[in-house]
Design a protein around this nucleic acid. Structure first.
Lengths: 240, 240
DNA sequence: ATAAGATTGAAACGAACGTTTGAATCATTT
DNA sequence: AAATGATTCAAACGTTCGTTTCAATCTTAT
């Protein structure tokens, strides 16, 4: 069994079909028969090659997240090396984090816009094993970027930065995943259904200013860590 | 069959259980037997009272969205009446739209934080009938607020406003729904698991400045309508 | 009290689900 | 050519799904 040669790459066919179908119908809404039907392989092939439907989903993501994670770390390493110990600009951090993601959407060999949409949708999937899987896959990268943002915005309380990181992830996920989900809500005049490689470029131009504006918004008047709730006067600290 | 009297309010018990379970496990991840089991009613009761699982989901939302829609329209009517024909402030519009939503989260009789989370999660559900249902339920309100934002920000292209409306919805949905979904991603130091009535108040203080910052962010350099794609040179129209 | 209608109950329906089986086929090596 | 291991195949596994059935029970009006 050499992996070179004219093998029908059943594994890749399954992964591609599953990626598209999970994006379109969700994990629970996609059946094994849909996947193997679209891939043109036998029903038993998924369990033979991956073991189970859960393991297939994990592999669908691992195939892409390996690249995304290392690339995000590489981009941050590069920034920090260029800065020579100085704190980074928030916009540079966002560019590294979300720009790397959006670049995936322009490269079909990395999953293209399909994987971006799958990723955005799956982050809200309620299934337990999905959440714990993502937690493990993302932990290192998130930790590094969180620390970079703490240094970049020293006057903003870390708790607030985490919140805004969370909010940026949400906005970006919707921007990516919501092609038809929320499109239908907002009135569908916008051309989000552009599946071409510049769809992600247009997305970037639209979303990045929004995220930066949100990240640098003035802080709320009062912010209380859950421990120190008896601070009577809003000292109204400045935001960057 | 009078609706008054000591009826065991089977319908309400089912709706409450379904609301919680759909929030926790999603639509496809929640079975009829889970719902009727949690509600303490017979399995056949759902089909008897609602007709089908799909119709049950619609009723779960209709019960809450009726209040939300009329209240959002009422808040906007009030603003426009006070303004006497002048354009509204963007912050007032956001306050009316998202503040009304967050107020639901403080009132357990309106579904409380449970319904808010369900709403945030369901907006990304891929099932077709869910998307078309939401489109119909939201159409009027979204249209009114969109028009108000167009008037409030006359120097911003309508397409850009729609985009940012979309992004704000995404951020808010994640902020609400992501209690454990993205919490696990960002590191779980934040106290989003506060289920008390002030959870929504804290959410508002955190999220509203972010949304306003994003809405008022500088525009991207170039923006092109999808029709005029053969524009060779980015004429770089001005931002506000 | 009795009839009529609304609601509940236990049991089963066919369909679809993820998974497993074991023989058949293919690719590769001796 | 024969043998070996990897892969594919059709078929079936047991389970769970949403839904239906119909008799039993409760509620209300006559």
């Amino acid at each position: 069994m050499n992996e070179a040669k004219t093998q029908p790459d059943t594994r890749e066919r399954i992964l591609d079909a599953a990626e598209r179908l999970f994006m379109e119908s969700g994990y629970e809404g996609t059946s094994m028969r849909m996947i193997t039907g679209e891939a043109g392989v036998n029903l038993a092939a998924v369990n033979y090659h991956f073991g189970s439907k859960e393991a297939l989903l994990r592999e669908v993501f691992r195939r892409r997240l390996n690249w995304l994670n290392t690339e995000r770390l590489r981009a941050l390493d590069l920034l920090e090396q260029q800065a020579q110990g100085a704190p980074l600009k928030p916009s540079s951090i966002l560019e590294a984090f979300f720009g790397t993601l959006l670049r995936m959407g322009t490269d079909e060999t990395l999953g293209g816009i399909t994987f971006l949409r799958l990723l955005g949708r799956t982050l809200t999937e309620p299934a337990d094993f999905i959440r714990t899987f993502f937690a493990g896959e993302y932990a290192e990268v998130i930790e590094r970027y969180k620390k970079a943002l703490f240094r970049a915005l020293p006057e903003v309380p870390p708790e607030e930065i985490i919140w805004r990181f969370h909010l940026m992830l949400g906005a970006m996920s919707y921007a990516i995943a919501g092609t038809d989900a929320l499109q239908v809500v907002t009135g569908c005049e916008v051309d989000m259904n552009n599946d071409g490689p510049d769809a992600a470029a247009q997305l970037a131009a639209r979303v990045m200013p929004f995220l930066l504006g949100g990240l640098r918004a003035p802080l709320p008047q009062f912010q209380q860590s859950p421990e120190q709730q008896n601070k009577p006067e809003p000292t109204s600290s400045k935001a960057a």
